[in-house]
Structures are given as structure tokens and as C-alpha cells.
Amino acid sequence: MEKELKEAYGFLFEKELLEEIVEVGTYRSVPAGEKIMDIGSYVNSMPLMLTGAIKILREDSEGNELLLYFLERGDTCAMTLSCCLGQTKSEVRAVAETDTHLIMIPIGKMEEWTAKYKSWRNFVFESYSTRLSEMLDTIDTIAFLNMDERLMRYLRDKAKITGDETIQNTHQQIAYDLHTSRVVVSRLLKKLELEGKIKLQRNQIQVIDL
């Protein structure tokens, strides 16, 4: 855990803070597809990403999901920070996009470190700013892009997050993430293939136009 922590956060945090994280943090290994946090649950710790990727989702009253943003190595979730500090229930769902390793930090340490370490304060404020920008970007995508443009953007983001131009998700899973129907996704994937932007294979999508 210590080696992974230094690789992900060594350039951000003081030596003393890294030592405290190792001392109080809880290491978690989460396989792809597993739920890390759910809507309505109380949050008593926040994640520091070591490896892998997590997708953060919202849900409407009918149970339909919408992808807000991804978390990668060196990230944390601003929504989790808000829930921890306000001791409120989570309004998002976090699911491992790939096999993921992370360290969970207890709530009490978050406030203590904010007063004690300048690097931690900067990290928290930067995390809020980054996640807000990503959520605004998601809103802009929904409001201003056509569905085929949204789909292509989603595929590029997935390829970047996983480090693999071949995407394993089913058409139904993509539909869930984009809050649309499988039929629409399948039709648009065919359109994108005809345009030479992707290549459809059995249970796979290869992104050509990165």
C-alpha cells in the first residue's frame, strides 16, 4: 500500500501526511463492476484512488442512471467529501469501472488534516473544483450535444480511463450510463461504424477515432 500511495500522491502530500495516511487508512481492493458506495448510504470515510477507475452515477426517481464523471489514480470524490463533512447520505453511486485499489480515510482525519496540512487543503479544494468542472461538462454534453456526439465522447472517455481502445461494455450498459435506450445506442453505434470512428466486434467496441 505504501508504495502505491507514494506513486499516486507522493508529489502532492508531505512526507508526514503520507505517513499518517498509511497509519490510519484502510486499504481496499475492489473488482470491476462492484459497488463501492450507494445512493442513500451514510459515508464515514473518503477514498483516495491508488489504481484503477471508478464511475460516479446519479439516479432519477424511476431508477435510471446517469454517468457524472470518472475517478482515476490520484483523485478523490467531491460528493464523498461533501457527505463526510456534512454527515449526510450519499446522493451518488460509485461503481468500480476496472479493478481498483484505494485507501479509505476516516472522517475525523479529514478535518484534522485540513487544519494541519496545506497540501491536504489544496488537494480538497482542487478536487471540488475539478469535479464541479466535470459535472458542468456533463450538463453541457446533455444540453448541447446530439446523442451520437455524446456516445462518441463517452467511448473516447472510456478508452482513456481504461487505457484500452477496445471497450467491453454491452449496448445495454452504455444505454444505462447515457440515460437512453439500448435500441438507440445500437443504432448509433452502427452509424459511428459506418463513419469509420469505431469498429464493432462480438461483445466489443474498438475506438478508432481517439
Score class of each variant (00 low, 15 high):
Q87P: 01
I142E: 10
V92G: 08
Y9R: 08
I21L: 11
K197R: 09
I142P: 02
S45H: 08
M135T: 15
L12P: 04
A159S: 12
Y27H: 14
E149P: 11
E65Q: 13
V30Q: 08
I36G: 10
E4C: 05
Q172S: 13
G40V: 00
V124Y: 04
E16A: 14
K6I: 05
Y117P: 15
E97K: 15
D60M: 02
T170K: 09
A94V: 14
L57S: 07
E59C: 09
V207W: 00
S61W: 08
S181C: 02
E149K: 15
S186K: 05
W120K: 13
R187D: 00
E72V: 06
I205F: 02
K3Y: 03
S41E: 12
D75A: 01
E91C: 02
T166H: 01
A143C: 07
F144Y: 14
M46C: 13
A53E: 06
K109W: 08
E126M: 11
S133T: 12
D140C: 04
I208S: 05
T130M: 03
Y176H: 14
Q204G: 02
A175Q: 08
R28I: 04
E14C: 07
K197Y: 01
A53Y: 05
V185K: 03
E19N: 15
D209M: 01
H179I: 00
D137Q: 09
R156V: 08
N122A: 01
G163A: 05
G52K: 05
K109C: 10
